[in-house]
């Protein structure tokens, strides 16, 4: 996707932000150190690592800013993420976009602002590294160069977390990455009373594949199954490899009945897809699926996972290459 389309794709941008799994997380030392350094080196009273969610800006790290988040509409950063270049405001009172902002007319009384977009490896601007002063100020090219370099370091830290959450065989989230993100998604879903569904997937007779063809072929099969699953995913879905041949798919804003349709489509795709082997030849495999819609009666993610897992094993004991949907609770 080209730059202009990426800048306009707020759904994709928010999904990229969610994949980073950094919103509403605890204070972390690397980001604290960076805003402290920005404040010291640029001699500004306010410095933030700001992430722009759908309707709010949330500060991963902040110095000189009392609020932990503000509505997106009043933020400077919602403008910063609309461009590739730094956003520089020398006098906020003279800029009609910001003159009435609560951050300008109230604490911390921002008068000047420099923000560098924080860009993900995919090209989405998920937030900004910001330096703000309480007096009008002209940020020099040297200031902007320093701030840009600090912003690169912030992106490196975010990327490091992202890479560590990815299973490098399949490209799916690791179990730990999936569980961390699923926890947050579950909280969000329950808070807003929305639907959400979980699909557990297990490759049938995978041990037989490994024993017959070897682990290298087994790995190729897992990669291709993950690749087939990826084609069914929306940007907001979470897909993880929970263990050897077991995967999970969390679908926000999706009822159990709708998730069943997705699971059945993927099950058929896997069953009909010849798995191409390096060095020639193909084999066919099937998978079993368990589906459970989130219910308020699930107190924990573990309970939800167990419900979907129970359905998965019902599908296995029912003959495999099947999908079993949990009754609503």
């Amino acid at each position: 996707m080209d730059n202009a389309l990426l800048l306009d794709d707020d759904d994709g941008r928010v999904a990229a932000l969610r994949r980073l799994d950094v919103l509403d997380t605890a204070v972390e030392e690397p980001f604290e150190k960076i805003v402290t350094l920005v404040r010291t080196v640029l001699a500004v009273p306010v410095a933030t690592v700001t992430l722009v969610d759908r309707d709010r800006q949330w500060f991963k790290a902040r110095r000189g800013m009392e609020q932990s988040e503000t509505p997106r509409a009043v933020s400077f950063c919602t403008h910063t993420i609309q461009q590739r270049d730094p956003l520089i405001i020398e006098n906020a009172l003279a800029d009609p976009r910001f003159a009435d902002s609560p951050l300008v007319v109230g604490p911390p009384y921002v008068r000047s602002y420099a923000g560098i977009p924080l860009r993900t490896p995919e090209g989405y601007n998920v937030g900004a590294l910001c330096a703000m002063d309480t007096r009008p100020r002209r940020f020099s090219p040297a200031d902007i160069a320093i701030l840009s370099n600090f912003a690169n370091i912030v992106c490196d830290e975010l990327e490091l977390r992202l890479i560590a959450q990815v299973d490098h065989l399949t490209g799916a989230l690791t179990r730990r990455g999936f569980v961390d993100q699923a926890h947050r998604e579950m909280e969000r879903t329950l808070r807003y009373g929305r639907a959400s569904s979980l699909i557990m997937i297990d490759v049938d007779h995978f041990k037989r594949v490994n024993d017959t063809y070897g682990h290298s072929i087994g790995d190729q099969v897992l990669k291709q199954i993950a690749s087939l699953a990826e084609t069914t995913l929306r940007p907001c879905d979470l897909f993880g490899r929970l263990g050897g041949e077991e995967f999970a798919l969390l679908m926000p804003e999706t009822s159990g009945a709708a998730a069943l349709v997705v699971a059945e489509r993927l099950r058929n795709t896997i069953a009909e897809h010849p798995m191409t082997l390096h060095g020639g030849g193909t084999i066919h495999v099937t998978a079993s699926f368990g589906v459970a819609e989130l219910s308020a009666s699930f107190n924990t993610l573990t309970a939800w996972l167990e419900r979907a897992d129970t359905m998965l094993y019902a599908a296995k004991s029912g003959g495999r290459n099947r999908t079993q949907l949990a009754e609503p609770m």
Binding site: E29, L160, Q165, D167
Partner: peptide, 25 residues
């Protein structure tokens, strides 16, 4: 020095997490 040290700490955590990731079945 501040940045190098905190990145090294994070890198250690990331590598350890990757080492715990599942192998093939």
């Amino acid at each position: 020095r501040t940045l190098v040290d905190s990145y090294a700490d994070d890198l250690t955590v990331a590598i350890r997490a990757m080492m715990k990731a599942p192998d093939h079945g």
